[in-house]
Amino acid sequence: MFANSDAEEELRGIFLDSDMDIAGDIQEHVLIRKGDEIIGGGMLAQTDSKVFHLLVFAVKESARKHGIGRVLIEELLRQPWHYCLDSSAVLERDHKVTTVAKGQSAGFYKKIGFVPCSFADLAQPFNEQCLECPERDDCGPVAMMYAAQ
């Protein structure tokens, strides 16, 4: 489930197609495979005992439009502990996942249950990640939060 260096090139290609990149150590990324094919990936970081931040998430272009992105993101949201390397968290009744949606992706995240929030609601350093970015205007980043119940 977690990626290793063998998967780095393929996963990076999927991310680059969505204007993203590997977000940390490759081993911290979750791989999504269908058979031998990597069809997507993501990376979650734990920012508080019940709060996680989704740094990157992308599905291979050829695998989109079959609802697979929704299935995968729902699974990550359902139990982020399981998909966050070295998470010390224990399941509790409520948890939150934050992210920064870029470009058109805010619509995708809204359909899944994320709601826009203030960048101030994100944990450091994610609350400041777009401040100095030269692509900010083109990218239109939206801070978003998902609250599990």
Partner: peptide, 16 residues
């Protein structure tokens, strides 16, 4: 597979 199980559980946010 894990992926297929995730597909089965899609739409059931309170089921893990």
């Amino acid at each position: 597979t894990t992926l297929e199980l995730a597909e089965t559980l899609s739409g059931h946010p309170h089921v893990l």
